[in-house]
Design a protein around this nucleic acid. Structure first.
Lengths: 268, 268
DNA sequence: ATTTCAATGTCGCCT
DNA sequence: AGGCGACGTTGAAAT
């Protein structure tokens, strides 16, 4: 089913009840609706607000969520999250949109005085997976350059050291001379990451001396946190923002510039 | 200048460079642009993200802020706040939109494979003042019912008591038997509110005994805070959400129901 | 369903 | 510009 757009530029040739009916049909079919209009907005629920008459863009998405955008600003001035029930109705000279949501009970009302344009879009398909992205390699670049973000006094001995069992991300030494195994993840880490780290720590422990294991990740599953505590392993959380800032500094130092958007895309 | 809408339903009859030019003209004129299209989105800045091909709504607002909406969900999947620079360019079979923002440096790129619809809206006027709303009367209703939200042990003696100088919102007595003058504001309070309160306190002090003055408001200006401290007056901040919840309880008690949206609008 | 925690949070006010 | 706090926060994961 291809994307089909229904456009109205000359809404004034239609009666309001007929317009309301078409819009309600569009809602039933879960089409996306965009209305450019002059309207006043009232909201009552978690808070309450009034917005007198002005030109706005109203968007009703396929799940029934509603956004009211003023021409300026970034965020919607009023909205209704997706658990809403929406309907249009003609009331004298007004076209009214009412969007209701339960738990919490909230009502959004748009009193539309004049309609500039209506767009109804059906058949939109969007199956794509949205992914936030900082590569594991980049996180490692930062750690190699700034091992102190793991802990003060940490010295990196080797990066990507091969052992029988796999590849240790970092082999390091702490300020008290103890060996440290560091495992780096670019996503929220699960129990597997903990097991992997434990294997490396046990393997190195055989060669003698105390060995610490630190898991570095942007987040940790609940099960993993327990696992780490149970096995005397440690964790260090990083956030993307900080990592990206440090990555800039790494690039400056290495004169291999911070990857541009194009490079970033090429890498996938 | 009336709102003017330019619509394209059959964009395929135009060449990409011509479309890009029209869109760039619209940007120059600070028109609002809505594009329904099949596109892939890349973002790099405070974080980074990739979103492969799918049908989306792209909105560029008059201040250059950009929103990319999937057909579902409530919040935009990608965005760029208003300090952005935006341009469109044709690149082979693609129409590309690039939105750049400085401080922090951020780049949003939309690679548009096929355009379903383009809407360009110029001349939108929206001067209205958006106001969040809990009426002073309602705040007073809550305080009358629950004076303990001001401070434990407070007893209300009179509401809206006329004095020579004006009307005191509440005359009360604290747990130590001292007279308390309470002034209520429904908006962020400025220095005037403090002066008003001081007048009442001074007037009542003449009749003998220690008189406290408390200003109750959702917020206080910096100058006011200094003024209150200088004059030995007190302040109690409330937040709308809490007030609304308490207002529900007041309504239950009073059997004068929580006002509906309609009542709320009628009141203005 | 509820609670907790992070976020490209956003937004506003203040230093 | 940077820091702090509130928000109709939103959103995801865990209980």
């Amino acid at each position: 089913m291809p994307v089909k757009t229904l456009l109205w530029d000359k809404v004034d040739t239609e009666t309001l009840p007929s317009i309301a009916e078409k819009l309600n049909n569009a809602l039933r079919e879960h089409s996306l609706i965009i209305i450019v209009c002059r309207c006043a907005i009232n909201y009552a629920g978690r808070s309450r607000s009034i917005l007198p008459e002005g030109d706005r863009v109203i968007m009703v998405k396929t799940n029934g969520s509603v956004l009211v955008h003023r021409p300026f600003g970034y965020s919607p001035v009023n909205w209704q999250p997706e658990t809403s029930f929406v309907k249009f109705e003609a009331d004298g000279d007004l076209l009214r949109m009412i969007a209701v949501r339960d738990s919490p009970r909230e009502v959004l009302e748009a009193n539309i005085q004049s309609i500039h344009t209506v767009m109804i879009v059906s058949g939109m398909r969007d199956e794509a997976k949205f992914t936030m992205y900082v590569s594991e390699k980049e996180v490692k670049d930062v750690i190699e350059e700034f091992p102190e973000i793991i802990e003060p006094g940490l010295k990196i001995l080797e990066r990507e050291k091969r052992v029988e069992d796999g590849i240790i991300d970092f082999l390091a030494r702490d300020s008290k001379g103890r060996t440290v195994v560091i495992e780096v993840k670019d996503e929220r880490a699960g129990i597997d990451a903990g097991k992997q780290l434990l294997r490396y720590v046990k393997a190195l422990s055989k060669t003698g001396g105390e060995v610490r294991g630190i898991l570095v990740a942007p987040g940790f599953s609940k099960g993993l946190i327990e696992f780490l505590e149970r096995n005397g392993l440690e964790k260090v959380r990083y956030d993307q923002q900080r990592m990206l800032k440090l990555l800039d500094k790494v690039s400056e130092k290495q004169a291999s510039k911070h990857p541009t958007l194009e490079e970033f895309i090429r890498r996938g």
